[in-house]
Design a protein around this nucleic acid. Structure first.
Length: 113
DNA sequence: GCTTTGACGTATG
DNA sequence: TCATACGCCAAAG
């Protein structure tokens, strides 16, 4: 297994439930600054059997990673909501649920950014 | 080797 | 909010 992918998977696995992170943040934690696309690559090629909270990985602006309307999109939203993350119209408030942000449910649910 | 193609990010307009 | 441009780099053909 490519050690870079291992670092990426480890970084993703380290995201606590109820929180989300962007591809860029994952790349950073994996020691690959600026290699966000590589994170997407790794996720797209996640080996079977490896359980990863991939649904906690979003775009930098908080939009859900997968395309709206795709099956993956629905599942990602479902998993996030199951963990208490507020998904509104295909996007999450990074201010409220991002890794190093204070969780502010009121603000997240009210929809302020 | 070169080109195309991404589960991306930032900067602009 | 949406679109474009550009940087980035690995994999596939």
């Amino acid at each position: 297994m490519d050690p870079r992918h291992q670092r990426i998977y480890a970084a993703i696995a380290a995201i606590p439930a109820g929180r989300v992170a962007s591809y860029g943040q994952i790349a950073l934690r994996a020691g690959l600054p600026g290699r966000a696309r590589l994170v997407g690559k790794a996720l797209a090629e996640t080996p079977d059997g490896l359980e990863l909270p991939w649904h906690r990985v979003l775009h930098a602006d908080g939009t859900v990673a997968l395309a709206r309307g795709s099956s993956g999109f629905d599942e990602q939203c479902r998993c996030l909501r199951a963990e208490g993350v507020a998904v509104r119209n295909g996007r999450v408030s990074m201010r409220a649920f991002g890794l190093d942000c204070e969780v502010d449910l009121d603000r997240a649910l009210w929809g302020f950014d």
